[in-house]
Simulated assay, not measured.
Amino acid sequence: MNPINTKFFNLNIDKQERIINAAMQEFVKAGFEKASTNEIVKEAQISKGSLFNYFRNKKDLYIFLIENAVNILEQIYDQIDLNERDLFERLNQVGFIKLNIQKKYPLVFDFLKSIRTEEAVEVKEEIDQLIGNWLDDGLKRLYQNLDWSKFREDVDPEKAVQILNWTMVGFAEQQISKLGTFKNVESIGGDIFNEWKSYAEILKRSFYRKGEE
């Protein structure tokens, strides 16, 4: 964490959330380069001097927002029950946890969606590094302590997991484009979750030995 951000954390929680939400809204709407700090401070009801007392510049604020979003994403993996050793039950568990977190923090997920297409050179490297590290670590934790004995003998678990990853990424891309904004996840998130389970069942029947489906 940047030492200057400690000033931000000395603020009361309501003020912190007001600044974070105002900044995320502006970056989602305008992208990094066109985002206006004037609009952010206006929405957050603070002075511009105050904003730059907490963050050195717009990039510092943007990186802070990514780190804050990653911390929220961490809640998904922190809530995984590693005693559940069936791969597909684990995935269902993660999907349910993720859906509840998306309902609680829709703006965070809209912000994460926006950074996936952010091309500003000034922040592109940091986005790739922060999100890439989280994804790599998340996948390791997702597949931790699983019962691989359920797989058919003629199925390579590593290749099966790769197919599963491709399917999850493709499914997520499709559903995110349908959602538009994660504010809609409250009303249609359950349908998305059930649709994913139907794909997972097909893969489960393909990968698992008879009697294990």
Rank of each mutant, 00 (worst) to 15 (best):
I163K: 13
G211H: 06
Q75R: 15
M1Y: 09
Y199D: 06
N21G: 12
V121I: 10
K34N: 15
L99M: 14
L107V: 06
E195W: 06
K183H: 13
I72Q: 12
Q175H: 06
V185G: 07
T6H: 11
T167M: 15
S36K: 03
A23K: 11
W134I: 05
N68M: 10
K159I: 08
D156K: 11
F27G: 06
F96V: 05
N12T: 07
S50F: 10
I163N: 14
I63F: 10
R18F: 03
N12G: 05
I101A: 07
D81L: 08
V94Q: 05
I127R: 12
A23M: 11
G95A: 11
L51I: 03
N21Y: 04
G31F: 02
N133K: 15
D110I: 01
I19S: 12
S47P: 04
E186M: 04
S149T: 15
G132T: 06
R209A: 14
L179Y: 13
P157Y: 02
W134G: 00
E119G: 05
F193N: 05
S50D: 10
K15M: 14
F109T: 00
S187T: 14
E17P: 00
E67Q: 14
S114G: 10
I97G: 09
R141S: 07
D60P: 02
E126Q: 15
W148C: 00
E186N: 11
S177C: 02
E153L: 14
F52M: 05
F27K: 02
D154G: 07
T181I: 01
V185K: 03
Q175G: 01
Q16M: 12
G170S: 15
E74C: 05
